[in-house]
Write a protein that binds this DNA or RNA. Structure first.
Lengths: 208, 208, 208, 208
DNA sequence: AATGAATGAGGTTTCATTCAT
DNA sequence: GATGAATGAAACCTCATTCAT
């Protein structure tokens, strides 16, 4: 395949993904017909099946691509920071900023993905674990360097941290006129978790 | 309607709900046919529609009933406790114990409910908010009494707390051989949140 | 199920089979939509699936029923006859009469069945073998009684006899204005086979 | 067009036909995609349409070519023989030998062709008639020369003879472990037909 | 002549729900 | 209230064919 052909193919695949994000965000995954995505992408119905195995595969491909982007960007966000606790704060903010800036993508990732039987029951959400692993590595780093208490389970807390962010994001997406901004929520969650896990210094030390 | 008839009605309605919990937990909401529930409940297909408006209504009714139970029991769990922070710990443990003891109910509430378009998009999950409101009230109580920092947003943290528990529970349900017990997770999450929100006053030793 | 209900059910099943024979004969199996059969039978599309597993199953059910009828009638046709050679002649006539009288059924059995992948590749045509077994038994009877030569293979000849009848019938069905009558063909084929297999005794001129 | 180009065209056309025979025999006509044939023939999908009007046309072209070969060879097989009855015997053997030696071709001609709507309903199988006409001519020859009874209808018997051979061949192809050899079947069928149609002269014992 | 990406028509089947008994 | 046979809408996906390159 020539380079031009590759680009054309890439561009068409991307064209379909972009259209699907729009359509799924607007009508939901189950509420959208493949034909709707095709019309939005300005291709024929069958063309979608030249790039994706099934409607489910299209959804999963969106997830893979967008989560891949998030994983990479999250790594970049914490790279220049050395304090693990500050890293957590930045991750929280990054997560929420992402939701806010790419609301359609967020709608699909947060809401529609969960509505797909395939996703939750047959698809192994590797990317999701990779994303949480970033949090996990920061936690372990902090434990190793002593800024995070050693009785913190990175396995549990990484998921709890993600769950907290996720639940807020979900609510924000589902509630058109939310009462709180996502940035404020990110800061609040980060503050609670940071205080909750940080090692207490020479200051009178909590015994537990 | 006679009392006996009412009881019979109640009994048949409950019979259907119990059957639906079994069937939905086993095959998923979308993977279960109304006829499957009918067979499990040992009633005719049409009979279900004498008690529930639709298949979605059946799912929502399970949610209403089971969340109603949880709300009531959660209230009872924290009633005898006075320390708001200890109340949070007990709520976390109660939540996870419930998941562990009623795994089929948990599967339906945590997993299957999310697979129903109707639930997330048209149904207002009042019970869920009531459940989180319990957490919220404890938080506000703590803020008022000074054991919780006043910069804690009860609106955000109640949802973050629930999200943390929920995400762990979801993972536990979806992963047959989880590495951590739910009780341990509950304690861990409670500890992080309690430390994260408690006021650092002249008090020397936090009790949790 | 009450007797009335059974009759109703039977009648509806038969109603669908009768409609399917009409429609399949008119437009071919592949050329007919399930909806066409439903309209002809004056039932809803879905009703067909209360009685048949699939469109293929409907075709096979027609085959089973009609071949079952033919098998039974063929047995009756030869029952009162004692001469195996005369039995063969009557079977040939019976076969062709059937084609002529139930041309729509014949069209489906002879032509459409062969167009169904399922039939020829996955379905074991037991009934077809049973039908040919009737011929085979007559042959063996004749061999045993000495009126048929002992070097005749009943296994081969039964199929050859059927193939000869079948090919003529097929042609007759596919060619609207056939040059020869089926009855005449039946007699001709019977005569050739009878002469071809009969033991040559002291008699010089065969009587058939 | 140069001679070389003609040969190339012929070669590519033949390449596609050969590939199609393989693929159709393996997966059936309906079960094979044009793309499968293209891959087997090592050409692009579209190339097939430079040589054949449609998928059906490809099937028909196979039929035309292979039946053309058979017709020619059948003529050659009977050319050196003078006795019409012996000619029939040789035709039967030739037919079955062909099936046995070119089983893939036979699978396509005998089985797959019948699965094609087009073939049976719109295509006039001229070649098939030509093939049967060879049998017919032999019969008429025999009638004219007196070795075949004059009450034999060549129109009917040619088709019956073919039908007998065809049915046996079909069964042999569809049943992997057939009980009888095709050569034996050919001899058996020939013997029955020859005895069945030959004039009973002063001679008492038929020679075949 | 060769390519292969793009096209788009077309139909079986499921299953939630109804309603006559 | 209970039944369960009948209903009918709704959409994914395949694949033969085309045509710009």
């Amino acid at each position: 395949m020539s380079l031009a052909a590759q680009q054309r193919k890439h561009s068409k695949r991307q064209q379909i993904i972009d259209a699907a994000v729009e359509v799924f965000a607007r009508s939901g995954f189950h509420g959208s017909r493949v034909a709707d995505v095709a019309r939005e992408a300005e291709v024929a119905d069958g063309t979608i099946y030249n790039y994706f195995k099934s409607k489910d595969d299209l959804l999963i491909s969106i997830f893979e691509q967008k989560m891949g982007d998030m994983i990479q960007q999250a790594e970049e966000v914490i790279a220049p920071v050395s304090d693990p606790l500050e890293k957590l704060r930045r991750l929280a903010c990054f997560h929420m900023d992402n939701v806010e800036r790419h609301i359609n993508v967020a709608k699909v990732l947060q809401v529609e993905l969960r509505l797909s039987n395939t996703f939750m029951k047959e698809y192994e959400p590797v990317r999701l674990r990779q994303y949480m692993d970033i949090i996990g590595r920061v936690l372990e780093e902090g434990i190793a360097s002593g800024v995070i208490r050693s009785d913190v389970s990175s396995v549990i807390v990484r998921r709890a941290f993600f769950g907290a962010l996720d639940e807020i994001a979900m609510q924000w997406i589902l509630t058109p006129g939310a009462r709180y901004g996502l940035r404020e929520s990110a800061e609040q969650i980060a503050r609670v978790f940071v205080r909750g896990i940080q090692a207490t210094g020479p200051r009178v030390s909590p015994s537990v």
